[in-house]
């Protein structure tokens, strides 16, 4: 890319941000001399944010949350893909257990929260359990659906070629199901972040959810706002990271689709 082309590319994408910028400016100006208890001036929120999260040690809460999230999400992803694949492989069993699985899936996990807290206390185990219980479903169901969608012709071809089961899974099933597995993992990510916060809101001594709730109970509304903003940023950074990983994992697929579209 020459300099001029690059510049034009940047410009054609950057101008779209005017609306986002306008909202921020509007928020800044309208809240500048706000006396409302609930909506403090944006300037003050950002100052507190700097003092607490960048200079101060509120970051510790963030690491605690992200630790639980990382473990819970990893377990949920592995179990989701694993069980989803098993349900696909053993179709009859999968079909027989489907009503039970479906019921557990549609129970809002939040409803189980108090019971889980009563059983497991308020430590890390409880938080990770809640994240796994809620986040496992999107991945599991999408894995199952994705594998069901594999072209039977390809599976028959693999059989005719006497490919081993492992090789069939690796070269036929996984690539075909990958786009949908990734879609499931992305949905699981959002659920995991929400449950991470919920578990801290309901019973906890640490974490960003605890920080927000504690600030709210002290009626420290500005501090509560800093927590909300940090949480919002964490959610979107995680999503952006996921999309970057997805682009790498699905590079062949995205490429193929782009070719298709050009026709």
């Amino acid at each position: 890319m020459t300099g001029a082309v690059a510049l034009r590319w940047v410009w054609s994408n950057v101008w779209r941000l005017w609306f986002s910028a306008a909202i921020l400016v509007l928020w800044w100006v309208l809240s500048a001399d706000s006396t409302s208890t609930f909506f403090p001036p944006l300037q003050r929120i950002l100052e507190r944010l700097h003092a607490l999260w960048i200079v101060g040690d509120a970051r510790r809460e963030l690491w605690s949350s992200l630790g639980h999230f990382a473990v819970g999400y990893t377990v949920a992803g592995l179990v989701g893909v694993g069980v989803g694949a098993l349900l696909w492989k053993f179709r009859r069993i999968g079909d027989a257990v489907s009503p039970v699985l479906y019921f557990v899936y549609v129970i809002p996990t939040a409803a189980l929260l108090p019971a889980i807290v009563a059983i497991m206390g308020i430590g890390s185990a409880m938080k990770i359990t809640i994240i796994v219980l809620a986040a496992v479903w999107p991945t599991m169901l999408n894995t199952l659906d994705g594998m069901r969608g594999v072209d039977p012709l390809k599976l028959d071809t693999a059989k005719v070629l006497h490919m081993s089961a492992l090789r069939t899974v690796r070269t036929v099933v996984v690539p075909a199901a990958m786009p949908q597995i990734m879609a499931g993992l992305r949905h699981s990510l959002q659920v995991a972040v929400i449950m991470m916060v919920v578990s801290e809101l309901i019973a906890s001594q640490s974490g960003i959810g605890f920080f927000i709730l504690e600030a709210q109970q002290r009626f420290a509304i500005t501090e509560m706002w800093t927590g909300i903003i940090v949480l919002a940023l964490v959610g979107s950074v995680l999503t952006v990271v996921f999309i970057a990983v997805e682009r790498v994992v699905l590079a062949w697929y995205i490429g193929a689709r782009a070719v298709e579209r050009k026709g």
Partner: peptide, 17 residues
């Protein structure tokens, strides 16, 4: 861009408010 950003924000963040 605003909608895409807000979509990734955990809804639950707004609950305390």
């Amino acid at each position: 861009p605003v909608v895409e950003f807000l979509k990734t924000v955990p809804v639950i963040a707004i609950l305390p408010l």
